[in-house]
Amino acid sequence: MTLTLTVPPGAKVRVRITNENGETTEIEVEPGETVTITLPAGSTVRVEVEVVDPDGRKRTETFTLKP
């Protein structure tokens, strides 16, 4: 399973991925970048995406991906 994120110009994104064992991976994606994350097959993962807009506003979306 893959997750692809494209960050709009001016925004910053931090992604936290937590697996079933509670292990967390965190990455930051710079403005204008596209990143593809390969998620472990057969695992349920929690993905938290934090977006910081150019004006400093933050918003966070959290979702769970199941196999």
Rank of each mutant, 00 (worst) to 15 (best):
L3V: 08
L3R: 03
T4E: 14
T4W: 14
V7M: 05
V7S: 01
V7L: 12
P8R: 10
P9V: 07
A11K: 01
A11V: 01
K12I: 05
K12H: 08
V13T: 11
V13A: 03
V13C: 06
V13S: 04
R14F: 09
R14P: 02
V15E: 00
V15R: 01
V15W: 05
V15Y: 04
V15H: 01
T18R: 03
T18W: 10
N19G: 10
E20K: 04
G22K: 08
G22S: 10
E23L: 05
E23W: 12
E23H: 09
E23D: 07
E23P: 09
T25E: 08
E26R: 07
E26T: 05
E26A: 06
I27T: 05
I27C: 09
E28V: 03
E28W: 03
E28T: 05
E28L: 03
V29K: 06
V29T: 09
V29N: 14
V29R: 10
E30W: 06
E30M: 05
P31C: 14
P31N: 11
E33I: 07
T34Q: 07
V35W: 11
V35M: 06
T36K: 10
T36C: 14
I37W: 13
I37F: 12
T38E: 09
L39R: 05
L39F: 12
P40Q: 12
A41Q: 08
G42W: 13
G42V: 14
G42K: 07
S43C: 13
T44P: 09
T44M: 10
E48N: 02
E48P: 00
V49D: 00
V49W: 01
E50V: 02
V51K: 01
V51N: 01
V52W: 06
D53V: 00
D53C: 15
D53M: 14
D53P: 00
P54K: 13
D55Q: 03
R57H: 04
R57P: 00
K58L: 03
E61L: 15
E61P: 03
T62H: 12
F63S: 15
T64D: 14
L65N: 01
K66Y: 15
K66M: 15
